[in-house]
Amino acid sequence: MSVWDGLAGQPEAIATLCAAAAATTSAAMTHAWLITGPPGSGRSNLAYSFAAALLSSDGADGDPVTTREVQARTHPDLSVLSTERVIISIDEVRSLVSSSQFSPSVSRYRVMVIEDADRMSERTSNVLLKALEEPPERTVWILCAPSDADLLPTIRSRVRTVRLRVPSVADVAELIEHRDGVSAEVAERAARHAQSHIGMAHRLATNIEARERREETLELALGIRTVADVIAGAARLLEIAGADAKAITEERDAEERAHALQSLGVQEGGTIPPQLRSQLRQLEEDQKRRATRSLRDGIDRILTDLLSLYRDILTLQINAGADLVNAELHERLAASARTSTAAQTLGTMDAVQTARERIEGNVAPALALEAMLVSARRPRNPEGGRETR
């Protein structure tokens, strides 16, 4: 089994990185890489597969022990910087740069991975820049970002960029089916509903509550008729986003707390000595920040699902002939398409994007969602007719 087997729809990128991992000359291998691609394209998955190949003693296909250590982030020659916050702090990058100066202990290379490198400020990026300008001979940097335009030009000039494309629904479905052990039908539907986002496809395929929340979101949007529906709908969308965020973070928070208590030598439910309480308070503060970010991510997932809904309606209105993301709702989508024009649907899609920008700009989510849903109101009569106020 190869370290590259868990990736979908990226043959060109895999070929480039596999050749680099197997290289014995500097022609194919370089000390700094940037993996770019849209959300869900598998940037971090590819980064860790590349890391496992570089750290393996068995060549570019990797070996099981190294692969497990990389997946668990426990390999002694692997350092990782990821964040749940909006930005990566300068102290985090300084610490990573400092550790990059050490020689590898058991492998050919020391590998430094930065997920979401686009979250670095200019000042923080300049700290990293110094490390990229004069790297130790056997240190390899792997950065991940949506686009190379998200990084400073000075950093872009010092990395080799590997660009990922959006994998096809079929590629993602095949990966989910074999990796998660679900039926071909469930995998295809999850990949289609996730619009080829690998992480979300996995979640929809393996979590029935996530599927139910998505279905409720679409049904709610299709049922918006009055201003009262708008207010109630916005409140319900917030509840759905909160439940989704809680489901993602709750289990992880419990695991982190249990691990922290164990490392401090405190039994679960036992009394925490005063001198150790500050460390647990820091963990709790980090978890609160992550919960806030998770709620925003949950709202963003809802808005992405709504965009897919209105995209399908627009597809039917202009007879584009493209495959529908929400094919199971074809009759409902066709009925909704008859109640509005293509221009109105485009206006609603613009409102969804505006809501996303407002929420990112710290506008109260309830207000942003209400303003967005106002444009989603449609008459009760499938053939048109007067709208209920």
Rank of each mutant, 00 (worst) to 15 (best):
G384M: 08
E268C: 02
N126H: 10
H202P: 00
E177D: 03
A170N: 10
S105Y: 14
V140K: 09
I224W: 04
R110P: 01
S95H: 14
R332M: 04
R94W: 05
A371W: 08
E115K: 04
L306Q: 11
A28D: 11
V93W: 05
V127S: 14
L367P: 01
Q353N: 13
T25D: 15
P382F: 04
P38V: 11
A322H: 10
E256H: 08
D148E: 13
S121C: 05
V113H: 10
A247N: 11
I318Y: 06
W33R: 05
D323Y: 06
D286L: 11
V266N: 10
A235L: 04
L329C: 00
G233L: 12
M349S: 09
H202I: 01
G269S: 13
L17E: 04
M112A: 07
P135V: 10
I114V: 15
R338I: 02
G62K: 12
A245C: 09
G298H: 11
N319P: 00
E216M: 07
S44V: 07
H75K: 15
L307Y: 03
H202F: 02
S26H: 09
P379H: 08
L222V: 06
G265N: 12
L7P: 02
A145T: 09
Q287M: 15
L369E: 06
L280H: 14
M372H: 04
N126I: 07
R214V: 03
V113L: 14
A335P: 01
I90S: 06
G384P: 07
A291H: 14
V97A: 14
M29Y: 01
I359R: 09
